[in-house]
Each structure stands twice: as structure tokens, then as C-alpha cells.
Amino acid sequence: MSKHYFKSALIAASLLASPAFAQVNLTAETASSGGSTHLSAAHLTEIAGTSGVANIQLAEGQTLTNSLQNVAEGSTDIASTPHILPFLMSRGVGPYGKLGKEKGAELASNLRSITPYTLGIFFLYAFDSKGINGWDDLEGKVIFNGPPRGGALNNARTMIELITGLKDGDGYTGIQSNWGQATAVITGGEPDGVVLPELFPNSRTATIGSAGKITAWSMPKDIYESEAMQKYMKAPGSASVEIPIADLQKNMGEDWTFVSEDGTFRALATIGGDVVNKNMDEELVYNLVTAYIGSLDALKAKAPFGETVSYDNPAWGMCGANPMKYHKGASRAWEDAGYEVPDCAKDNS
């Protein structure tokens, strides 16, 4: 048992033993099942109930742009979100364009983080039968790069351009489909290669892997370390990630082969977390997050990707241009459990 887990478990046990500990009713919204966002919210719902902290009514399959606004407005208690959404809300742009800058900034100022996670990691992969030899071999190829619109498509296109100099429609042909059809499009053989945010593994990579041998390529080290790429990976909602090839190979199995120059897989990650309104009671948030931290080992064990999505890294992607701060109760819970929360990620208001 890790020292973090042991200390958190003791704190959670002391909470349960307190006769003054009162259970409350909360609402939460998250995405459809199968990813890190849903798993985090579903686990929080479970552990909050079993530990006696709160009864959480969880609505699944929600549009997270709306869920985030609901929390900011106070009509929902907890929501899952990629961190790019609070940034866009704070400026009144993108899906929050109708709010305007002033109203968007006002609402975004109500949001506070409680837990972290990785939503997906962008990288290039292809069936071996396609004969692709890596990032330098994309010119003239057909690349599946996401849904018809949104952050995933923008990230994939930007990554390809920064790494290869090629633009969608001018150097390679990008094709898109909605997320529900992505697996069928890839296994159907139309694209030569794929650049999508994936987990190691998720349901899509598991299905695709069963259809044939696949090779995945790390971002080239010189590109990864370049000023342009480092700047891009520090944008709100993004982070750089390095994972030992051996760990990926163990998680993904013999259907997948991972390639890098030096045994380290480098990529762009999309990050986010569960959020609450800043006005949620501090002790309630502390108790919720303490119970969550105390059960992190159980959370990670619930999915094959559990160890690779940074559920236990509250510093992940915070600070810089990311406007999100941790709720005071949350940062106290993480620190009491032995984790480091950067000062720039704390709510000092």
C-alpha cells in the first residue's frame, strides 16, 4: 500500500467515525462511459455514497460544454470537463460565444477543480498493412484526424503541421467522422493512418488492435523539445507527456508496437478534471476529495488505462494559461494526503 493511499485511508476512516458527519444530496454530470472522465465521476459517486459523504445523482452521456455552465451557474453541483472549456468560457468564445466576454468571465470565475485526469493522448498510429513508416511518411496519405469539428480535430491538425509541416488538404487528406463511427472508419481501411487522442488502452484501441497489427509513433524528440511544440503543449487544457515504451507495450499487448528514438514515448495530452462551484461548502469538498483520494488504488484498478491517466497528480496541467484553481477544500485534502498542489493552482481568494 502506498504512503499516499495509507494516509488518505486513515483520514477517510476518521471521517466515517465522526458522529457529526452528515450526508447530503448532490447532482453531477459526466460524459458517456468508456473514458477517464466518466470513470472518475462514477467512482466519486460510488465512494461518496459508500463512505457516507454524499448521495450523488449522476447524469451520464452529457454535453460537457453545457455541464460546465450548469456548475458555473449553480444548477449542477459537480461536472467533468476538459480544462480548455473553462478557458473558453472565461473569454466568452467558442461554445460560449453567446455569453460574451464579460458574462463568460463572471461564470468562469465560479469554477473550481477537485480532481485531475488525462482525457486522451494524441499520437500517430497505423495498421502495419498500410506500410506507413512514421511521421515523415504522411505526405499524400489519408489521415483520420477526429470528429468534424472541435478541439480534438484542431489538436490533431496542429500536431501534424508542427511535426511534418503538412496541412490538412495541402499535403495530406484528412477525414473525419463522429466519435461513434470512428472505430468502424479506422477498421474499415479508408485511412492510411490515424492521429487521435487515445488511452492506453481504451475500448477503441482494443477493438482496432484485434483487427490487425498496429504500429504507433512517438513524437520525434527534437520536435517535442522545440520551442514551438513546448509552447503549444502549455496551452490551456494541454500538457506534455512522457511514458516508458515498456509500460505502453505491457498495457497494450502484442497487437501494438511503439516506436521512439530512445525508449520514451512523447506526446501531447488533453487534460481536465471534475469541477464544482466555488461556493460549495469547504468541509463537504474536503470530505468528498479525501474519500476519493483514499480509494485511488480501487479507482485505477477499474479500467486498463487507470494507471496512465494521472488520477493522482493534482499538479497535472495546472497554472500558466490554465485559469482553473483547486477548491480550497480540495487542495487541503490533496495536501493532507501527502500530495503537492502548486501555489499557483490554489484558490487564495
Rank of each mutant, 00 (worst) to 15 (best):
H4S: 14
H4C: 08
F6Q: 15
F6P: 05
A9D: 10
I11E: 14
A13V: 09
S14K: 15
F21T: 14
V24N: 09
L26F: 08
T27S: 15
T30Q: 10
G35S: 08
H38M: 04
L39Y: 02
L39E: 15
L39G: 02
G49S: 13
G52I: 12
V53P: 09
A54I: 06
N55V: 12
N66S: 15
L68K: 05
N70L: 10
N70P: 04
V71I: 02
S80K: 05
T81A: 04
L88Q: 15
L88A: 11
M89A: 06
S90T: 11
L99I: 10
E102V: 13
K103Y: 07
G104N: 00
L107M: 12
S109H: 05
N110S: 02
L111N: 00
L111D: 00
T115H: 09
P116G: 09
F122G: 01
F122L: 11
Y125T: 07
Y125E: 07
K130Y: 00
N133F: 06
D136E: 15
L138H: 03
L138K: 05
I143L: 13
P148T: 01
P148L: 09
R149Y: 13
N155V: 06
I160D: 03
I160A: 03
L162Y: 12
T164L: 07
K167E: 14
G174N: 05
I175F: 07
N178K: 12
G180K: 03
T183I: 09
A184V: 14
I186N: 11
I186D: 08
I186C: 08
G189D: 03
E190D: 10
G193C: 01
V194L: 05
L196Q: 13
P197C: 06
E198L: 11
L199H: 02
P201V: 04
P201L: 08
T205F: 03
A206K: 15
I208E: 12
I208S: 04
G209F: 05
K213E: 14
I214N: 02
T215L: 01
S218N: 03
K221E: 03
K221G: 01
D222I: 13
D222N: 13
Y224L: 08
E225A: 11
E225P: 07
Q230D: 00
M233W: 02
A235Q: 15
V241C: 01
I243V: 13
A246M: 01
D247F: 03
Q249V: 09
Q249I: 04
F258W: 07
T264S: 05
V275P: 00
N277F: 06
N279C: 05
M280P: 04
E283L: 11
A291N: 08
Y292R: 10
I293N: 13
S295G: 04
S295Y: 07
L296S: 14
L299A: 04
K302H: 02
F305V: 01
V309W: 06
V309G: 05
V309L: 06
Y311W: 14
N313E: 04
P314Y: 00
W316I: 05
W316F: 13
C319Y: 02
N322F: 01
M324C: 04
H327N: 06
A333P: 08
E335H: 01
A337S: 12
A337R: 06
P342R: 00
P342Q: 00
D343N: 14
A345C: 14
K346S: 06
S349T: 14
